[in-house]
Nucleic acid binder design. Structure first.
Length: 402
DNA sequence: CGAGATTCATGTGAAGTATACCTTTAGGCTTAA
DNA sequence: AAGCCTAAAGGTATACTTCACATGAATCTCGTA
């Protein structure tokens, strides 16, 4: 037994790994050069540059679909600036916050609490009045004379959930601060985001704006080549692999992150199978796996009630394969299920909200329709490939002890 | 036959409740002078 | 008397419930051509 294992590990080490540096394909990797984003980099850089002279830069809004490099470019430029600032002893601080993270930054209170945490102030999860948290945060912020750049990623999600009051407060913050100065960089996937914002906020926050266009297939290929040179050993990619990854990603509005992920997972699959070549088949397999993992990840991090609701949707779907799904049916099943596992059933009102949130998460599509005489309801459709459903369903059932 | 009224099943908003957690404060106990 | 600890009081955010009203097109009703 143990010898088997030791040989296994020996073999493992003997094997030529496919990856030299897997980090290069991971989402948080920052390459030394960012192709096809020169204009954007320059724009942001020239916007931030005044900070080195101690002047407050304008607020900036960045738009672009997912995987167009918004976050990467912004963080890259910001870190360069703060580097130089540090060398020159200019007090600059960059804070990055992703507003999408559920239960971390999706209400006004939690955003401020999270920001305060970035400045080293711990704020309890509940119990304090919101304006008290503001005060604490401001006090910390204003301790030293410095310039602060606040990067709010996926800011549209925040506003959707918590309203635009927070943004309004951010615009006023500078008049309260005595020592520090704050500028905001907002990043949004939604190009129409600004349309539904309070005009006062709009004018003061939207001083500059910048749009990231999607990459085209050729550009994605460039990116993939650059990264794969770092990540993989030579001659590991079958001809056409890069092209296919790029094509897949270009199909989805030029999402480079997706392309990179596809390549990485393909590599992992090949490696796990002890193969020395990454082939086109691996990509298809990877696509499936990514989709599945993504949903599984979401599913696992959701509260029990969400999981149960989702499972109910799956079950209803199973009963009537082709017929559209409605809230009422889902709720009936949901009630039964929650009885079975001894969970206090929520009211329909709440389940309705949960369904709306599952929709926001992108697992389902729920559209409010009117069936005329037969009332009004949500028509629910799965937004994930059917092939992944059984696995997710199973995971859900296990997670809920069913 | 067609315009308007009706109807259904649930969406949606507002307000209230339960829970978990926070700070403040007052009382009680300990300690040291 | 001063200092420290504890528990109660008073406050908040969040998740959820309760209540009440809003919705909007299929269907019904009924006057009219």
């Amino acid at each position: 037994m143990s010898t088997d294992l030791t040989t296994f590990f020996h073999d493992y080490l003997e094997k030529q790994p496919l990856f030299l540096n897997k980090k290069a394909l991971q989402t948080n990797y920052t390459p030394s050069t960012i192709p096809h984003r020169v204009d954007q980099i320059n724009t942001i850089a020239s916007m931030l540059a005044p900070i080195l002279r101690g002047e407050k830069p304008s607020n900036l809004f960045i738009y672009g679909k997912t995987g167009t490099g918004k976050t990467l470019v912004t963080q890259y430029v910001a870190s360069q600036v703060s580097h130089v600032a540090q060398e020159r002893n200019v007090p600059v601080q960059v804070v990055y916050l992703n507003c999408k993270l559920k239960r971390v930054a999706d209400t006004e209170y939690r955003i401020i609490a999270q920001l305060a945490k970035e400045f080293g102030q711990d704020i309890p999860a509940t119990g304090l009045p919101t304006d008290e948290v503001y005060k604490l945060f401001l006090k910390h912020l204003d301790q030293d004379k410095r310039l602060i750049v606040l990067i709010l990623d996926e800011i549209d999600q925040l506003v959707k959930k918590a309203g635009d009051e927070i943004l309004y407060n951010f615009t006023r913050i500078n008049s309260v601060l005595k020592n520090a100065e704050l500028s905001v960089i907002g990043i949004s996937n939604d190009l129409l985001f600004m349309d539904n914002i309070d005009p006062r906020v709009k004018s003061s926050l939207n001083e500059e704006e910048l749009v990231f266009p999607p990459y085209n297939a050729i550009q994605i290929q460039d990116i993939l080549r650059q990264r794969s040179n770092i990540a993989f050993r030579e001659n590991i990619l079958q001809d056409g692999v890069i092209e296919k990854c790029a094509a897949y990603a270009a199909r989805e509005h030029g999402d480079a992150r997706r392309a990179l992920e596809l390549l990485r997972v393909s590599g992992e699959l090949a490696e796990r199978k002890n193969q020395q070549l990454i082939t086109i088949e691996h990509i298809d397999e990877a696509e499936d796996k990514i989709e599945r993992d993504k949903v599984l990840e979401i599913v696992h991090t959701q509260p029990k009630q969400f999981q149960l609701t989702l499972l109910s949707i799956f079950l209803v779907k199973e009963v009537s394969e082709t017929k559209p799904l409605f809230t009422g049916d889902v709720y009936e099943i949901y009630k039964d299920l929650s009885q079975k596992i001894n969970l206090k059933p929520l009211t329909q009102r709440r389940v309705s909200d949960i369904i709306a949130e599952l929709d926001m998460l992108g697992i389902i599509n729920a559209k409010v329709i009117s069936k005329g005489r037969y009332g009004r309801t949500r028509e629910i459709r799965l937004a994930i490939p059917i092939s992944t459903v059984p696995l997710i369903k199973q995971a859900l059932q296990e997670g809920l002890n069913l």
